[in-house]
Amino acid sequence: MSGYLVKVLVEPRPGLLDPEGQAIERAIQELGLPEAHETSVGKLISFKLPGGSLEEVRERANWIGQKLLANPVIERFSLEVEAL
C-alpha cells in the first residue's frame, strides 16, 4: 500500500496556563518523579493521505493544521509524515 500516514501533534501554546497539564504533573511528581516539570497535554490527530510527493502531503497537512486542527491563539502544532 502506498501513501502517507500524517500525525499532527497539537499542544498548548508555550506560556499559556495549562490546568490539565498541572494536574497531571502533580500526579507524576507524587508517583516518584518529583523533578518532573513543564508538563503539558495535547492531542494527536492522525490520518492517511494517498499518493503525491512528500512535500505536497506535508503542505496539505500543514494547511489543515492551520485551518482546523490548532487554534493559533491558544495552541501550536507539529507534523510527522511517514511514507507507507
Partner: peptide
C-alpha cells in the same frame, strides 16, 4: 464566533479544571 474569526481571542479550559 471566536473559532470562526468573527470575534477576536479564544475560549480555553477553565483555570479551575
Amino acid at each position: 464566533l471566536t473559532e470562526a474569526g468573527l470575534l477576536p481571542g479564544a475560549l480555553a479550559r477553565n483555570i479551575t479544571r
